[in-house]
């Protein structure tokens, strides 16, 4: 890919599909699970294909543009996302506290943390969640998130800050990251 400009959707959509399908699927599957993720990825490319004439390289890269469409499509499946997050939240502690006291090994506590995070992400307003997940899962810069979602740079920053604050509070203001870091070595 180095050196080559990204394919222009209006000229070579097949190449756009080849270059980005797996990545967009991965993002959607992370948010919704593989089955719904696969549907969302297919829908994203179908919409992108239909809008390809309107793609403007001056405004956003092809990748950013696709993430913007994918995020909108994910937004139509809020219930699926909430379900996915709740399912993962149930892996966390609280449901089975007795067991939790017995098992303090790193694996369980990492799973518990994931569960708490999933629950906290599920509780975020949609705008904040989209910004947070485009940064966390798609590695988009603030500029790219702004272009993908059609919001201002400032709005990206403020949504992200609010999301972080909410998460910090939800996780009790502790630093559970240490647990994960220890576990990962």
């Amino acid at each position: 890919m180095t050196g080559d400009p990204p394919p222009h959707p209006a000229e070579s959509f097949d190449r756009v599909f080849d270059a980005y399908f797996a990545e967009i699927y991965r993002y959607a599957a992370k948010r919704l699970g593989p089955d719904a993720g696969s549907d969302v990825a297919a829908q994203t490319f179908l919409e992108a294909f239909r809008q390809r004439g309107r793609y403007d390289p001056a405004r956003a890269g092809v990748r950013t543009w696709l993430y913007g469409i994918a995020t909108k499509v994910v937004g139509r499946h809020q219930r699926a996302e909430t379900r996915a997050l709740r399912a993962r939240a149930r892996l966390g502690p609280g449901r089975d506290t007795e067991e939790h006291t017995d098992r303090v090994d790193a694996r369980v506590s990492a799973e518990g943390l994931r569960g708490e995070i999933a629950g906290a992400v599920a509780a975020l307003p949609r705008g904040q969640r989209d910004v947070l997940l485009l940064v966390a899962l798609a590695d988009l810069s603030h500029d790219e998130v702004a272009a993908a979602l059609g919001i201002s740079y400032g709005t990206v920053g403020s949504r992200l800050n609010r999301a972080r604050t909410t998460l910090r509070k939800a996780l009790g203001g502790t630093n559970p990251m240490l647990t994960l870091e220890e576990q990962h070595g």
Partner: peptide, 23 residues
């Protein structure tokens, strides 16, 4: 928090040929 969120999402299995074919 961003990194925590990133790490908390499990890696999905790669798309199958069928998924790609249908899309």
């Amino acid at each position: 928090e961003v990194r925590m969120v990133r790490d908390s999402y499990p890696e999905p299995p790669p798309p199958t040929a069928q998924m790609i074919g249908r899309a």
